[in-house]
Amino acid sequence: MQLPQAIERLSSLLARLPGVGERSAQRLALHILKQEPAYAEALSGALAGLHSGVRFCERCHHRATANLCGICSNPHRDASLLCVVEDVPDLLALERSGEYQGLYHVLHGVLSPLRGVGPRDLTLEALVRRIDAEAPAEVILATSISVEGEATASYIQSLLRNRPVLLTRIASGVPQGTDLEYLDQGTLGRALRARHSLLRP
């Protein structure tokens, strides 16, 4: 050990964060040490209050400070639309798009037998209960366009079969600013299948 134990301890904790390797953890620890002591205190205070100050929204399972999150408690959101997302970063991305004014339901994952994630590990039962109780006009499945995201969408489809709700799936296809020439065949094939009409005879 070439560094004082306090630094080593912080580095080893930081190294458990996603995307942080051993060396960058060490760099971060040394960086924190270089700042005013007040910064380290504020940081540790923020970390200490994280679990007690954050809970799951009991309606949509987004992170919240009260029983309901900011979106669910906002009377201006359109409660007839319900968008199902895998995780909080996906919700935040949709919010950034500014295109969506409805409500969300966060699954907290995707069905993944390879990672040991099954239907019971997601908030699927709560989703069905919620749809029965709130009767939204449309449920939009915005799970990722991947094998596991598609399987999760089709699993939800089978759960909601026989319920009076419009179920839609986000479109997948050609990304903005892409030459068709360089597109992989899977994406191109999906874009062709999901084409929409411009004129009808």
Binding site: P113, E148, A151, S158, G186
Partner: peptide, 25 residues
């Protein structure tokens, strides 16, 4: 990388995913 073929398409079901994952493992 370039894709030659993909076995599970857009409308993959959960049962299919379970079987394919099991074979992969």
């Amino acid at each position: 990388t370039s894709e030659r073929r993909a076995w599970l398409g857009d409308s993959v079901g959960y049962d299919q995913l379970c079987l394919a994952s099991y074979a992969a493992e």
